[in-house]
Computed example of a mutant assay.
Amino acid sequence: MLDTLASYVKTKREKSEMSVRKLAEKAEISHTEIKRIEDGTRKQPSPKILKTIAAALNVPYNDIMIAAGYLNEAESGDLPTMMTASQSKSSALDIAELTERELEDVKRYITFIKSQR
């Protein structure tokens, strides 16, 4: 099981040798928001915020969603693995080779994302 969101973000940020301010800049959110997340005072930021942090840290979106408590590991196994930001730039929505099952997974994931608005 993944750590809490606070330790997950802090560990990934430190591993990337980024300051709080640098991560905030890359994620295009305030450094105080990052600090609150890492301190544990901001328990469940929106999926939209988590997506920007995941992209800035170049980590899978599913992992940060699990750490935040939006998904459990069993549920994430049913969803397609999300690519990191650098991977998605090179293969944006290449669905031609997906199986029927994979396309259904993508549809379910899109429905989930929309429900988080």
Rank of each mutant, 00 (worst) to 15 (best):
L5S: 02
Y8E: 04
V9N: 00
V9M: 02
K10Y: 05
K10C: 04
T11H: 07
E14F: 13
E14P: 04
K15M: 11
S16E: 10
S16P: 04
E17T: 15
M18E: 07
V20K: 10
E25N: 13
E28G: 11
I29S: 05
T32G: 11
I34H: 01
I37P: 01
Q44E: 15
P45F: 03
S46M: 07
P47C: 12
K48M: 10
K48F: 13
I49K: 11
K51A: 09
K51Q: 09
I53M: 02
I53K: 00
A54F: 01
A55S: 12
A56G: 08
L57I: 01
N58V: 03
P60Q: 03
Y61Q: 06
N62F: 01
M65K: 01
I66P: 00
S76L: 03
L79W: 05
A85S: 14
S86G: 07
S88Y: 13
S91G: 13
A92T: 15
L93C: 13
L93I: 10
A96W: 06
E97D: 12
T99I: 09
T99H: 12
E100V: 14
R101M: 14
E102K: 09
L103S: 10
D105F: 09
V106W: 10
R108G: 08
Y109L: 13
Y109A: 14
I113F: 06
K114W: 07
Q116G: 04
